[in-house]
Design a binder for these strands. Sequence first.
DNA 1: TCGATCGATTGATCTGGATCAAGGCGTGCC
DNA 2: GGCACGCCTTGATCCAGATCAATCGATCGA
Lengths: 265, 265
Amino acid sequence: MNADADIGSCTAMRSENRVGKLPEPPSPIADDGDAEHFCHTCAFSGACIAVGYGKKELAELHCLVEHVSSYREGEYVFRTGDPFRAIYAVRAGTVKTSLVDEEGREHVLGFYLPGEVIGLNAIYPDRFPCDAVALEDAQFCRFSFPAMSALATRLPAVQQHLFRLISKELGSASLLAGDYSADERMAAFLVDLGERYAARGFSGTHFRLSMSRGDVANYLRLAAETVSRVFSRFRTQALIDVNGRMLVLRDPVRLRKIGRSLLSG
Amino acid sequence: MNADADIGSCTAMRSENRVGKLPEPPSPIADDGDAEHFCHTCAFSGACIAVGYGKKELAELHCLVEHVSSYREGEYVFRTGDPFRAIYAVRAGTVKTSLVDEEGREHVLGFYLPGEVIGLNAIYPDRFPCDAVALEDAQFCRFSFPAMSALATRLPAVQQHLFRLISKELGSASLLAGDYSADERMAAFLVDLGERYAARGFSGTHFRLSMSRGDVANYLRLAAETVSRVFSRFRTQALIDVNGRMLVLRDPVRLRKIGRSLLSG
DNA sequence: TCGATCGATTGATCTGGATCAAGGCGTGCC
DNA sequence: GGCACGCCTTGATCCAGATCAATCGATCGA
């Protein structure tokens, strides 16, 4: 549904999601721990790019990571209009991308979890068409896009990966553009989030929403009150447990059924 | 707004749009006429890829065109689930892409004019995630995607072009996913269509809608009746003239203002 | 400890656009 | 020519979700 995209995966993560019922889970971090000893700090030694590439590719990508940056909650990774130079792999934290239209209304484009990539929509206009804000303290690996393209020229696997990355995000965006009910959207959103966490090695049923109700609402094209109401309804239907931002998917199967039109489509 | 994308442009078109007030315009065809003598019939000799590449690239791309196909109105170029092998450049006619969800509801993803490319959203799933139907008799150049990728590996310009193509479509899809009123959507849609026609050398203010009201409605997430009503309202406001499917943008400036949140964003 | 502030929930009401319904109009076919 | 079928338009009504409003915590700084 959303941009479930990663550069080569960063999937070597082994971190356990220690969430039990509704305690605060550890802030997810994409860190492989070992696996070629890359992606340790994502600084010089890390590329957050592991699975699927050989050592040669790894070493090359490795050199691409220009810079690892940390941002505090609320800080901007980039802003609308900034010249496009690089894409960013989220290493820790969650990012929201959004744009403010001519009327001053905000439109949330997406939420990005550790292991996912932001900035791909900037390639065409050659400027960032949206803002990217850290919803929690976050870390990123910054990849120079020109350098990455050059590498892609030499390594077909990298090129292919980039194509797939953008194409995947295109598919997600198109789906979200469709006409669906509030329940369908919410269910699909929750299941999708769960699956993305699960893909990173975290719990797919117990997690913390790092964004406000307002952000969820905006993303799903709903009002914040509607999001609240749907949560309540889903709770009385034993589909989920919500406690503030802590969330438990109690019946992922039924949720998936509700949101099926938007999922895996 | 929509996928205003072309492979290298096909822009050498010189065809005049002979539409006066509301007569039937010629069916737009992307044909450069001369310019390296490519893209004549788009068969063996044409690649529909011209501007920006040197002769070498042209010659190479040229060889990529596997196949030129003609479709009658209503025929499918590809269907949901078909294995992804190639992308298609529209040479003539208009194409609608759409998907049918689990509930059986259709969701129109986009309309593609001559010079634009369909199939890019199939890269990731490696299958076409939607149907593509000719809304009028149409012609396409078919490019093997593996071959194109291989070429992109050798020719950075081609790679860059592909990245931009997908990224552009991603931007359009995200915009459309936002929350806007019926008027904003319609105005933006009309202006965007006009601009895309204009970019191909046709009139940007006098053109024929090749899709039904129902298709426009579905694309804009509205009911067909609403599209009709907005047309009527825009007409009484002297913004447009509509006569069946013939359309005149009488006040593009004001239209653009109405749809500005969705345009050039 | 006390406000103050901000986010979330819940209730009451409103409304943009959907849905239902009834013609009109053009086009093609017999 | 005339009929039938699709598409489009227009009017009447309905409803999902927005908006307005009130309350209830949390969190936080003084």
